[in-house]
C-alpha cells in the first residue's frame, strides 16, 4: 500500500482578486495511496474546492508540488493537462453534468471521444462495461430526463469509469439526492473501492464522510485534521435496514 496515487508537498494557492490576494491554500501536505477512499471535508471557504480543482488538474498550484500517479503536474501546459485528465481522472459532479437529449450510453462514451487512440467499437464496448458496472445496462438508450436523480448520478459515475482512471474525484456527489439514493450512490462507490478504485470525494455531510476509509478536514486553507474512519459505515447494510417504501424511482 505504499503506492502513492497523490503526493502533495507544501502546496499553496493564491488568487488575485483585483488588488487583494486571497490565500486559498496555505501549505498543504497530503498523500493518498492506491485503493484509498478519502472524504475531504470542510466548511465553505476552507479551501476544499480549491483543493479539488488542483487534484482534478483543472487548476495549478502557486507553490509546491503535486504528483499524480508519480507525474508532476506543475510543469504541464493546458493542453497536456487536458490529455492527462482524459487518461488519469474521472469526475463526478453534484449536478451530474450529463448532456441533455443524449442517451446514457453516449454520455458515458463522451470522455473516449477525446482520446484519439480509442476506436469507435472499443468506445462502445467500454461504455457498455461501465454502464454494467453501475447497474444501468438496461437504461443505456434512455435520455437523462427519463432517468431519476440517482440513475443520472450512476450514469455520471459510469462516465467517470469509462477511461479506467487512476483516481475518481467526486464533488458533493450526493448533494442533490435524497437520503436513500445517497446511500445507494455511496454503496456503488464502496463497491468500486472494494474492487480497487481510488476515490476522493468532497462532502460537508459528516454521515456521508463516514463511508470513506479516511477523512481529511480543511480549515482556512490548511488541513485541520486527518483521521482514519474507525466506525466505517457499510452502505449496503444500512440500505437493508431502511424501509422499502422509501424507494423512489420516477420512471
Amino acid at each position: 500500500m505504499n503506492n502513492n496515487i497523490i503526493e502533495i508537498k507544501s502546496l499553496r494557492k493564491d488568487y488575485h482578486v483585483g488588488e487583494v490576494t486571497v490565500h486559498a491554500l496555505r501549505g498543504v501536505d497530503l498523500k493518498i495511496h492506491e485503493g484509498e477512499f478519502v472524504a475531504i471535508m470542510g466548511a465553505s471557504g476552507s479551501g476544499k474546492s480549491t483543493m479539488l480543482n488542483i487534484l482534478g488538474c483543472l487548476d495549478k498550484p502557486t507553490f509546491g508540488d503535486y504528483l499524480l500517479d508519480g507525474i508532476n503536474v506543475n510543469t504541464m501546459n493546458n493542453d497536456a493537462l487536458a490529455r492527462f485528465r482524459n487518461k488519469k481522472l474521472g469526475f463526478v459532479f453534484q449536478s451530474y453534468n450529463l448532456l441533455a437529449r443524449t442517451t446514457a450510453l453516449e454520455n458515458v462514451e463522451l470522455p473516449l471521444f477525446y482520446n484519439p487512440q480509442v476506436r469507435s467499437r472499443e468506445r462502445k464496448e467500454s461504455a457498455l462495461r461501465a454502464l454494467e458496472a453501475v447497474g444501468l445496462s438496461d437504461r443505456m438508450h434512455h435520455m437523462p430526463n427519463q432517468l431519476s436523480g440517482g440513475q443520472q448520478q450512476r450514469v455520471a459515475i459510469a462516465r467517470s469509469l469509462v477511461n479506467d482512471p487512476v483516481l475518481i474525484l467526486a464533488d458533493e456527489p450526493t448533494g442533490n439526492l435524497d437520503t436513500r439514493t445517497s446511500f445507494e450512490i455511496m454503496e456503488l462507490f464502496q463497491d468500486l473501492n472494494d474492487k480497487g478504485r481510488t476515490i476522493v470525494y468532497v462532502t460537508h455531510e459528516t454521515d456521508i464522510a463516514k463511508f470513506a476509509t479516511r477523512n481529511v478536514t480543511f480549515r482556512d486553507g490548511k488541513i485541520q485534521r486527518e483521521s482514519i474512519v474507525n466506525e466505517r459505515l457499510n452502505a449496503r447494510e444500512i440500505l437493508e435496514t431502511l424501509p422499502v417504501e422509501a424507494i423512489e424511482e420516477f420512471d
Binding site: N78, D79, A82, F91, N97, L99, Y114, R159
Partner: peptide
C-alpha cells in the same frame, strides 16, 4: 457553458 466545462474536465482541450 457547463457542457463546455464538462468537456474540458473530461479531457477536451481548448482546440477540441
Amino acid at each position: 457553458t457547463r457542457e463546455i466545462g464538462l468537456r474540458m474536465s473530461i479531457g477536451g482541450r481548448g482546440k477540441d
